[in-house]
Amino acid sequence: MKVIFLKDVKGKGKKGEIKNVPDGYARNFLFKKGLAIEATPANLKELE
């Protein structure tokens, strides 16, 4: 799953980066803790 990092996550990504991460990791950790959001076309446009 492609995500946009909202905060730095040690060993995974830095704020503003767009990366592919495992689906479970994104849903169960990154999204729940507010560390990242899904890289949807709308979210990507908002980032620019």
Rank of each mutant, 00 (worst) to 15 (best):
V3T: 01
K10F: 14
V3L: 03
G16V: 00
D8I: 03
R27Y: 12
N28I: 07
P22S: 10
K2A: 13
D8T: 13
A26Y: 12
K12V: 15
G34N: 11
A42W: 08
L35W: 13
P22E: 11
M1A: 05
E48T: 13
M1R: 08
A36R: 00
L6N: 02
L35P: 00
A26M: 07
F31T: 03
D8Q: 05
L6M: 07
K19T: 08
P41A: 13
N20D: 13
A39P: 03
N20A: 12
N43W: 07
T40D: 05
F31A: 02
P41T: 11
L44F: 07
I37H: 04
A42T: 10
K14T: 09
E17P: 00
F5D: 01
N43S: 09
G34W: 07
K2H: 09
E46I: 14
L47G: 06
Y25Q: 04
K2W: 15
K12G: 13
K19R: 12
K7T: 12
K45R: 13
G13S: 05
I18R: 02
N43M: 11
G24L: 14
G13I: 07
I18M: 07
K15I: 09
D23M: 15
M1D: 02
N43P: 04
A42F: 09
N43T: 10
R27P: 02
G11E: 05
G16S: 04
L6K: 03
E38M: 11
F5E: 00
E48P: 09
N20Q: 13
F31L: 11
L47F: 14
E38I: 08
M1G: 03
N20Y: 15
A39Y: 14
A26R: 02
E17W: 04
P22F: 07
T40E: 05
G34T: 03
P41Q: 12
K12E: 10
F31R: 01
G16D: 05
I4P: 00
A36Q: 01
Y25R: 06
K15H: 06
V21Y: 07
N20G: 07
L35H: 04
E46T: 13
K7Q: 12
A36W: 01
F29H: 10
L44S: 06
K45D: 09
D23L: 15
I4K: 04
G24V: 12
L6A: 02
E38W: 07
L44T: 07
E17A: 05
K7E: 10
E38V: 07
L30K: 00
K12Q: 15
I37A: 07
K33Y: 15
K45M: 13
T40A: 06
P22R: 09
Y25L: 08
I37D: 02
E48S: 13
F29I: 10
K2R: 15
D23H: 13
K45N: 10
I4Y: 10
I37P: 00
I4L: 11
M1N: 03
R27L: 12
G13F: 14
G34I: 03
K15V: 09
P22K: 08
K12L: 15
N20S: 13
L44K: 06
G34Q: 08
E17L: 03
K19V: 11
V21S: 02
I18Q: 04
K7N: 07
G16I: 01
L6I: 12
I18T: 06
A42D: 15
K7D: 05
P22V: 06
E46S: 13
L30V: 00
A26L: 09
N20E: 14
F31Y: 05
A26E: 06
M1L: 14
K14P: 01
N43A: 14
A42R: 11
K7F: 14
E17Y: 03
N20T: 15
N43D: 07
F5N: 00
G11S: 06
N28S: 09
E46F: 14
N20V: 15
N43Y: 09
E46N: 13
G16K: 03
P22I: 06
D23S: 15
A26Q: 05
I4T: 02
I4A: 03
L35Y: 13
F5M: 04
K32P: 15
Y25T: 04
L30D: 01
D23R: 14
D8V: 04
P22A: 10
N20F: 15
T40I: 07
P22Q: 09
F5K: 01
F29Q: 06
K7G: 05
E46D: 12
F29K: 05
L44W: 07
L35M: 08
K15N: 04
K2S: 11
K45A: 14
L30E: 00
D23F: 15
V21M: 12
L44V: 11
L35A: 04
E48Q: 14
T40V: 05
K2T: 14
Y25K: 04
I18H: 03
A26G: 04
I4M: 09
I37Q: 07
G34A: 07
L6T: 08
K45G: 09
N43V: 11
I4H: 02
E46P: 07
E38R: 10
